[in-house]
Amino acid sequence: MYDSAKRVFIFFVLFLFVGCDIFEYSPYDDDLETNIRDSNSKNISKINSILTETETDSFDYALISDTHSDYDYLHDAVKWINRHENIKFTLHLGDQSDSGLKFEFENTLNELNKLNNPFIVIIGNHDHLSQGKSIYNTIYGQTNFTFTIGSSKFIGFDNIVWENANNRPDFDWLQNELNSHNGNLFLLMHIPEGCMSMELYKEEYLSIINQINNLYRFHGHTHCLDDNWPKLITCAITEKMIPVVSVRNQNVSYKIESF
């Protein structure tokens, strides 16, 4: 009997000394186990260093979205992307979590880190829940950001309304960023304008984008693939489809691949 007691006691003591990470104060805190910080800007630098001078106007990239807690599907998608060397980077169009909890961000990050090439992640409505925005800011950086590759400009725009305390998205910033570029423009924004949460701002948003040429808009959120090129809604990862976008100077096209 004492042997059993000893075993139970040793089991607990061992766990106690495994490390301080074993103590969790709340699922809502933002005390992350990962040391990864400002991932988006680091990966933007990597993209520019991977692409040689001739490739900066001729490259392919993959779109994934709404991975939530479907880590098996994400794992398979990562393996598929890694097999295709033409794909220079991956854009995650938001909703990497179910409830914006730190361990959900970390689980997704564990899978995305297995990508051979860089990845950029934008924020989704589920990622805004709880402390999600603060965790996103810590791991990935600002929710509104831009980067350029050759003559292509990418704009990551946080258009979450309800989960962001019913606040108006920063359309002034968006308009400014859209107006300051003449080449290809890629707008990465989780919620498409047809959805209910964007209803209030639909007219304002459309009045901004209607003035812009060479604008390609990529979204997630609805979980269903919807092609209204140059607007493309990427399906959830569970649909096992990945749009691969090809940029050849001013010509932009895409192909849906299955994994």
């Binding site: 766990f15 807690s69 794992h75 361990f103 564990n110």
Partner: peptide, 27 residues
Amino acid sequence: TELGILEQNLYHIIKTGRVNIFDRLNM
């Protein structure tokens, strides 16, 4: 002393093979 796991972690472990239970136990 107690060794526990949050229900959402348990759900992820059951749903997918990508989450390690020992990474998600808390004391």
